[in-house]
Amino acid sequence: MTLEISRLQQKLESGKFVITAEVCPPKGSDCSAFIASAKELAPLVDAVNVTDNQGAHMRISPLAAASLLQRDGIEPIFQLTCRDRNRLALQSDLLGAAALGIKNVLLLTGDHLSCGDHKEAKGVFDLDAVQLIDAASRLCHGEDLAGRKLQGPPSLFIGAAAAPEAEPFELTLFKLRKKIHAGARFFQTQAIFNPAAYRRFQEVMAPQGVKTIAGILILKSAGMARFINANIPGLRIPEEIIAELESASDPRRTGIELACRLAREVQPFCHGIHVMPMGVDEGVGAIVAALSNTSDDKESIPCR
């Protein structure tokens, strides 16, 4: 195990703006399309998020998928949820990730089983996200949740999720503070549609010394936006964005333009952008280009 820190951590801690993007592992054991997709993204981004049975839909293990990226020289952010594993399995997977060279982890509670394709399954939730972050911090300090010493503590860059647009905002804050206290070093947020809400979030987070990476979701069509509003927990796409997609002659292109615009608007208030391409992989390049062309004259909240 190496002691060096991940590129994502290096860049964030040296004050550089980062780009991450999410790739969903396959339902099946053939990872060729997943790897191809990650390889296309790799030159554009600092790290690639590997989702964990996203939306409670069963897919290949994110640990296996993240390890395949790591093997190919692509830096993964291994997402791990509490829904499908008890505290032994969670700690064990974190140690496994470290042994495979994976350093970035995003620790989540996990979407409820009723959102997914195995609604009959038993949800585990032995730990919640705050407790999982605490467990990961303890592992990094050389002991497990039972207080037993580890043979070789892992070196993990611990991330957590935030939902800056969820209301009531005050209700989400005490949990965010608990996540930071438990050891979260960076936050990747739920998809943002309202830059003012992100600014409010960043104003609270800035004094805490953690890095925030704003989630940008690329919408393909008005239909997709409505589907997300109806089916995906915690996401709320405003009517004016849906209307803009509805009246677009080329909704896919308009969706990319909308994502670029949001990314530029939120850029002054965050340390990075996390793109959820939703199959529009070419949009990632467009967002990266849009951000690098942005002038620095905007008002910003200093975060270091």
Binding site: G123, L171, T172
Partner: peptide
């Protein structure tokens, strides 16, 4: 719905639960 002990999950919005938009979030 998830029995979590440290605050609302990311699916809470408008004080409601992700599993049922009519149901209040326990947190």
């Amino acid at each position: 719905a998830k029995g979590i002990l440290n605050g609302p999950c990311g699916g809470m919005d408008n004080g409601k639960c992700e599993t049922d938009p009519e149901a209040p979030c326990a947190w």
